[in-house]
Write a protein that binds this DNA or RNA. Structure first.
Lengths: 374, 374
DNA sequence: CCCGCTTCTGACAACGTTGTCCAGGCTCTA
DNA sequence: TAGAGCCTGGACAACGTTGTCAGAAGCGGG
């Protein structure tokens, strides 16, 4: 799948090639510099070329480029001139091969376009930058196979570490990589069947608080619309919902919960269903931001006022009528914490995997404080 | 800055090291396989190790790994067993060095956390994936120096191509890279002082339409709040605003335009300023999504109804009272178009730089259709 | 039985960089 | 002025992979 050879044609830059050896043929000027100047990467100059032009040894160029001591100012000047003249830039691929560290980390998430992941990946990027690393990014689209494919492609690139928001629930395929020293932190959902660092929100507690909040405002018939329970966060939020109901001694009717429903059309259907019938719900707890947005739309079309608390904050939630009460999780902190743990694994100060749970915050804006309207 | 050596310590995995040579010391079992098994990357097995274990030559392993023909099923089976047993994974860094292509592209944008860039980078990622490439991501934070630093770091990694949303206005530093064959496409804003592919929205036309829309609804005193005119999009939108006003024969008062203002506090101040005074504006045209959001908040606090059209769509804009009329640009198409052109550059079918302008779309939702309230 | 052909395999060099180590020239001191 | 020690510079190998090429083994036909 992710394979360099088959991907796209190598652009031939119209340089004659020796049929037998495949080497580039260059007019032989009998000058060492000229012969050396013929390399690949679209004929990028190498240290060898710079050395030839500056009339110094290869290693001396390396020393200048890397700011190592032991080069006279005069020599350094000549080298710098040659670098400038040729437009040389060090090839980090080769450097990586030699040094064994790529100074890059991989981030696999569900969907870059989801507003929840924007701040998260930005936070990871900031930490990476502070540690001199670049960020390689990929979306799994909630597909376990694609997740694995991406993760392994990143491992083949020899990223130093991985931040993974898992789509699947079995990560044993990562065992050889972990053993080989690839630092790994899972975020938002725990890893499956392996022992690894994980940073998550208190999904259970947040959901329980949200539903308890609705109960405290007098609701008894409370609906829940969430994602597939296969997804850890969804399962935890469902568990929180159930716990709060049970704490209040309320028996949950089957018609009140709708699981595995996220696309707008089906969410709409689920919401309509709960609001119809002989004993409709008077409040809805929505399991993530996408569901919340759709339910807000549905409720806006209804005359009866139905209370709503959503998991995840949404932009402009305070400007709606009524404002949308939410359980907010801090995506940026999630990402920052995970990335920081990653680099602590890398510098060796972090040894045993831990599970870190970050608190959520209930933000009341009106929709969650509406009384039941029977 | 982005330097592999200084970034973080290499984790010592408690393997004794020869002080003189720095090589790992391994109990000498006099077995070739055992000696070969000692490599780097946290002691990852290499093809050499696999070869030794399978009792075949190095190249045969390479053939199996890459699915090249000319290996008997029996040999292949032995090799695959060895790969499995050792947890071998091909080192793409070495592969890249040998092949000269990294099958990765770089994306430099302003801020991953900005909702406008989420869909854009997702679209770029999709195209990259379809072409077998990975995506390396970085945020410039609207800082030209940081943009350059990032771009050059990506070039040092030898990404095959770059998609850049420029922060600066001088990209001559890219000339050696372009000459060396790094495919490059600029998005959202054109490159400065170099000739390169660029994909942008019709900022001028969109802004003119937006303001003309307000004028058509009877407004004459129309304010504009936008970003620094140093930023191309901001300048174009300002130009569109001016053009629409001029077309209608309206002279723009100094107090009506506010430039270089994006942080919420100052936007709020600018908006309040326009709405106060002897002849306040009756409508505001906001230059980007962040400004729009703040102005929506400000207007929500005012009793007098002020018309509003914003550049960029915002989520839930239809649910506000009134719905927010916007000029929407299609971030995903922007990204997809740019990435597709990038790969067409790479396969050699695209030769001369072009400027592509994508149309914008005026979405009327209420706020832009309010009549003037003097 | 030998020759030539095909099929499979492996030795070797190369990609561009960095780490090691040694040579040569210099300075400084006795 | 000779010897020790330091500084600078360069030759060389190695990182893990792939491309080239040639050798070995198997096989059929003359």
């Amino acid at each position: 799948m992710l394979d360099a050879t088959s991907s796209y044609k190598i652009m031939d830059r119209h340089i004659p090639v020796d049929d037998r050896t495949g080497r580039r043929i260059v007019p032989d000027t009998h000058s060492r510099a000229d012969r050396l100047a013929t390399t690949r990467y679209g004929n990028r100059p190498t240290m060898k070329d710079v050395a030839a032009r500056a009339g110094v040894g290869l290693k001396t160029v390396s020393r200048v480029v890397n700011g190592e001591p032991g080069v006279t100012p005069e020599t350094e000047h000549r080298v710098r001139e040659a670098i400038e003249a040729l437009g040389f830039r060090r090839n980090d691929s080769a450097r990586v091969l030699r040094k064994g560290r790529t100074a890059s980390i991989g981030l696999v998430l569900e969907d870059l376009a989801d507003p929840f992941y924007g701040p998260l990946s930005r936070a990871v990027e900031e930490v990476a930058r502070a540690n001199g690393a670049l960020l390689i990014n990929g979306s799994s689209a909630e597909d376990p196979e694609r997740e694995q494919e991406l993760v392994l492609a990143l491992c083949a690139r020899r990223v130093d570490g991985l931040v993974v928001i898992p789509a699947g629930d079995d990560h044993r395929y990562l065992e050889p990589e972990l053993k080989a020293g690839v630092a790994t932190v899972f975020v938002d959902r725990p890893a499956g069947r392996i022992d690894a660092d994980v940073v998550l929100s208190d999904n259970f507690g947040g959901a329980r608080d949200a539903v308890a909040h609705l109960i405290a405002h007098g609701h008894r018939r409370i609906g829940f619309i969430g994602d597939m329970p296969r997804i850890h966060t969804a399962a935890e939020r469902l568990r929180g919902y159930r716990a709060a109901m049970e704490d209040a001694g309320i028996e949950v009717a089957d018609a009140w919960t709708s699981l595995g429903v996220t696309d707008p059309v089906r969410v709409r259907g689920a919401a309509e269903g709960m609001l119809a019938g002989p004993s409709p719900v008077t409040a809805i707890f929505t399991g993530n931001n996408r569901v919340t947005v759709t339910v807000v739309r549905v409720l806006a079309e209804h005359t009866r006022r139905v209370a709503l608390v959503g998991f995840d904050d949404i932009e402009l939630a305070d400007l709606l009528q009524p404002g949308v009460t939410v359980v907010a999780q801090d995506a940026a902190t999630l990402g920052r914490t995970a990335a920081e743990r990653l680099f602590r694994q890398l510098d060796g100060t972090l040894l045993t995997p831990e599970r870190i749970e970050l608190p959520t915050r209930l933000i009341t804006r009106g929709s969650g404080e509406l009384p039941p309207a029977d």
